[in-house]
Amino acid sequence: MLSKLTFPLEQLNLDRFFTGEGPFDSPLILARRRIFILPTRQGVLFAIVLGIMLIGSINYNNSLGYLLTFLLASVAVVSILHTYRNLLSLKISVGNIQPVFCGEKIKIPVVIDNSGLSERFAIQAELSGEQIRSCDVAQDGWASISLSYKTRTRGMHRIPRITISSVFPLGLFRAWSHVRLNNTYLVYPEPAGKTRLPFQWNEEQQQLRGYHKGTDDFAGLNTYIPGDPLGHIHWKAYAREQGLFTKKFGGNNEQELWLDWRVLDGLSTEQKLGQLAKWVLEADKTEMNYGLWLPGNRIAPSLGPMHKLKCLKALALFREAM
């Protein structure tokens, strides 16, 4: 009989308490077993005040003193339920995260969706250790909290643990839930380095020239396709309401720029990637077609925001072959 009553120790998962389960695919619903609740420091102070009041009531045998002490204790107990309920059944998801350069702050939009019948007040969201933001969520409504987080390394990362918590209504108890989601974000290498753009081309690059149209001579108009460089749009025609066209360039003096890993000898891998990232940004401004050469990855010369992002992503995800 007793053996049946013993607590199944293997089910006691302390990680669930300290770090949270998961990661899960977004959205995650805050179910009962995911929410924890403990008294806050104010709650402990309140308990001490109640203790003094109880001793005073016993000593003076003061009936209304007893009644008040018990009423306040009951309010505290009921507030546990309210605090817990404030988080219960909320649906947590993370919206689209814009990539940033390493060292910048990434913004993680946390969407809190409440499809229950009661309004939720002062729901707090925090990234482990970073700043806390709070918001109210109307009944059958949603709210979003943007959490920012300073990035430290390039690459594709899973978002850090988000803690959804609330001390509402009385601040005596704090209910929380560690939410670990599968969402990822991209961090580009930090643009750095002093080497100028490599306008001098080596032999191989010379050979590569020729098939690609340059940006020097105007060679007619094309219908705009999303992704075309903004600088090439024929704005005058657009202003005359003739439609959106992209200017086409070509000719003998076309230039191509190769951002080449190999020219950056003597630098560490991360320094090289930083320099290349800086070059990508600079080359994007020159309105020259540029290509990227990385060990095991070659991106053909092109231009435009899509191309820029493609190059930066390649830099972010770069891994040296063993």
Partner: peptide, 11 residues
Amino acid sequence: AWHLSGHTIRK
């Protein structure tokens, strides 16, 4: 608790 959680049921 039963009364309160009734208000959170996802419709």
